[in-house]
Design a protein around this nucleic acid. Structure first.
Lengths: 341, 341
DNA sequence: TTTTCACACGAAAACGTTGTAATGACCACC
DNA sequence: GGTGGTCATTACAACGTTTTCGTGTGAAAA
């Protein structure tokens, strides 16, 4: 087990100074061509690789980006991460992923450990608990310390930083209108409790679509699901109590679960009931029938977030406070759970 | 934007030396109780946080673990990551995730960038390309440099390092036997091409189960799918050409796709045909009907891998070469796509 | 009074780099 | 024979810590 080779070793063996080696390796013309070649050859021979940590310490940059998400076992977030990764790697950055597990405390702890030198900037999506608590001091603190921050998807309006979101209201509204166009008259909504920002916004979109097309909102068709793991029961109850010919769900899980319930009850999809979900994930794609959804374009979102962060990191430190919020467009992925129009 | 506060600043303001501050902060009894309290109070006031990079450089430990996986948009890997995360955080480590995108080159590059000081050890699962190429020099090199390495799931037998796998052969064999017990007589196999190690092993399990129960393998019932994105067509062809009353797939995607095909053709599940998959992911859980699968216990795998790595990292550097391979047990998750027995 | 010792603290080196300023050698010019 | 100017190289400080090894002070022991 040969130990890592350092500049110092090369210097000693070649009988020159550390500075000479350092400069030779970076091809500084301060060093004679002769020495440069000699050093480089020797470095290559020893398989020298500069120590990232030392470099980080030296120029106070780590070339690491910290990403904090609530849950990795969640297809949408992984698509965002893969977008971040791609963009970050392109610019020579590594991605450090931390999970908040939807917990406020873990979110704070993760931020604190990362902020102390490990990374140059943050990309994050809020945990449910943080959204419910509305306590954002940790974000503000990071910003105060001059640590750039980009929020995505689950954001906090009140924090001054770059953001990238999708237009949830518009996406949901488009979806509901789409369903109406295919002939749906009574569309049920499967949403989450209101403190989940995206749930709230998508509900808003549902309401808006109905109102804009002259319909009115029937509260009995709206189901707000608290416990995502036990949504079956609540959904079954909705089937018991209300009649509808369309279901719009704010995520794919609810949509698929509802489809299963419908099939168990003998409904034909989409003839009897149409279904649409939000988030174009694997579930939607492989459900039976395949689910028509609002695609969120996670990878693009990740790329965008990474791009914004990196730009700020590399923009000569002039911290102009002109924060922007980018909106990623949604699109409808038509599949088999809705009627063709 | 207040800049990060350092020990040096505290020292200057309190008019003591850096050493004193450092010691006081770590509660060294070399320093008088009085000074200790004064320093600590002041540090707290300024919200001092030690700089991780400097500490890393000093003691040549980063407290970071590098994880390289082929694809993050793959449920199994994310469950493993969440297991790694949990275990790593418990021990005060951060997780740096890199994606190889199933590419050999990206795998090598990722390893190289991480190895130069960013992390203390690796956890990785091979990319398909690496498996096909059988070129493992980058792994060997990491090991030679004294960088501990734990491989999981897609491993290379010939590399001397700790490994954690599931018993694919046994899992597949158990699954097939389970199906036979529920009455299946002719079980088709949906597998991948052979260079994907797990596909090969699971195929082996399928064959073994058949042989052990006195049956013989009908090659026409075995489908090896190359292109995962276009599996529908190949699967449809299998339906055209062969008759069977059970389908065992080496992953959940193939299983679900096959179920859809069966339903389109009017077969009842599980009455006419039973289905089983491998990997207990969301697809299986929310498919209709819900898919009976072999659960791989990704989180446990991740925890195990992290535990092994951390143990090696913290075991006083005595590099005893006694590498172990841990086998995570599989279990069958019974759901609706198979008959009850 | 001198020696010894505990005590509280500080100076400096080290981790591996990079960049600035300094050094020395050599040559040319007046 | 100075003065100036290249040129190649090196010393050193710095990044923020930790840690080893002093060092000076005062009090107890001789």
């Amino acid at each position: 087990m040969k130990k890592k080779v350092t500049i110092k070793q090369i210097a000693r063996e070649l009988d020159v100074s550390v500075s000479t080696v350092s400069k030779a390796l970076r091809d500084s013309k301060e060093i004679s061509l002769d020495t440069r070649q000699k050093v480089q050859a020797f470095a290559k021979l020893l398989n020298y690789r500069p120590n990232n940590i030392a470099i980080s310490l030296k120029n106070r940059k780590t070339k690491n980006i910290g990403v904090i998400i609530p849950e990795i076992v969640h297809h949408f977030f992984t698509t965002v991460i893969s977008g971040i990764e791609r963009e970050a790697n392109k610019a020579g950055y590594n991605v450090i992923v931390c999970l908040s597990d939807e917990s406020f405390d873990k979110e704070v702890i993760n931020m604190e450990t990362l902020a102390n030198g490990s990374i140059d900037g943050f990309i994050l999506s809020l945990s449910k608990e943080t959204q419910a608590k509305k306590d954002f001091h940790h974000l503000q603190e990071a910003i105060n310390q001059g640590m750039p921050l980009v929020m995505f998807d689950r954001i906090a309006e009140e924090i001054p930083c770059d953001k990238v979101v999708i237009d949830d209201v518009d996406g949901a509204s488009k979806a509901v209108k789409y369903m109406m166009k295919t002939g749906c008259k009574r569309i049920a909504l499967l949403s989450t409790v209101d403190y989940v920002s995206v749930g709230k916004l998508r509900t808003e979109g549902y309401v808006r679509a109905l109102e804009e097309s002259g319909g009115k909102v029937d509260e009995s068709l709206i189901l707000k699901i608290e416990d995502i793991d036990n949504c079956e029961k609540q959904i079954a109850e909705l089937f018991d109590r209300a009649g509808f010919d369309g279901v719009f769900a704010v995520n794919e899980l609810f949509a698929v679960t509802a489809m299963k319930e419908a099939q168990k009850r003998g409904y034909k999809i989409p003839e009897d009931i149409s279904f649409m979900g939000f988030t174009d994930g694997i579930l939607s794609k492989y459900a039976f029938p395949a689910l028509t959804t609002v695609a969120q374009h996670g990878p693009e979102m990740g790329e965008m977030a990474a791009k914004m962060l990196i730009q700020r990191l590399e923009s000569d430190e002039v911290d102009d406070e002109s924060y922007v919020t980018e909106v990623i467009r949604t699109s409808i992925t038509e599949r088999e759970s809705t009627k063709s129009n």
